[in-house]
């Protein structure tokens, strides 16, 4: 196993552990924190492969914006901690995991190419327009939500 594979497995293990933290913790606030940690680790996987632009995008948008809003929401609407894991659903989830793992084992994936990505070749004029349209869409969405929220009593 190469150094990159070991590093990738460590980062992925931490992401899965953070996901288990979300599942097992009682308090919503800590669940939101663990979720932000998990998203950071997932973004780190992109950084491991040198896809820095995707790392920045996920870290800024998902961890920086949506994650922090979720943490703030969980802190605002904090309820007494109670166990939210229904143990009835654990056996079907484990069975699904086994079936998925077996199908993955039988799939015989073949990835022999190197990860190649260059942000300079990506930023052509049509893709800059796409990004601008997407940002405008999110701004319009937020303004519509704020307008609806102001109408509430």
């Amino acid at each position: 196993m190469s150094v990159e594979a070991v590093l990738l497995s460590v980062v992925l293990c931490f992401a899965v552990l953070a996901a288990f933290g979300v599942l097992l913790t009682k308090d919503n606030f800590y669940a939101a924190i663990y979720m932000a940690l998990m998203m950071t680790f997932i973004a780190s996987c992109y950084a491991v492969f040198g896809i820095d632009a995707a790392f920045v995008l996920i870290a800024f948008v998902f961890v920086g914006a949506i994650g922090i809003v979720t943490v703030a929401l969980a802190a605002t609407y904090r309820r007494p901690p109670e166990r939210q894991l229904s143990y009835v659903w654990v056996p079907p989830a484990a069975l699904t995991a086994v079936v998925l793992g077996y199908s993955l084992w039988e799939a015989h994936l073949h990835f022999s190419n190197q990860v190649s990505f260059d942000i300079q070749n990506f930023l052509m004029i049509d893709r800059i327009l796409l990004i601008l349209f997407l940002i405008s869409l999110v701004v319009l969405l937020v303004s519509a939500i704020l307008r609806m929220y102001r109408r509430l009593p």
Partner: peptide, 20 residues
């Protein structure tokens, strides 16, 4: 200088994705 995406890396990523 770019890490290689081989079968091991892809399997690790897909396993973690399914688990999450």
């Amino acid at each position: 200088g770019v890490p290689v995406m081989n079968d091991v890396s892809a399997s690790l990523i897909y396993t973690a994705a399914f688990t999450v």
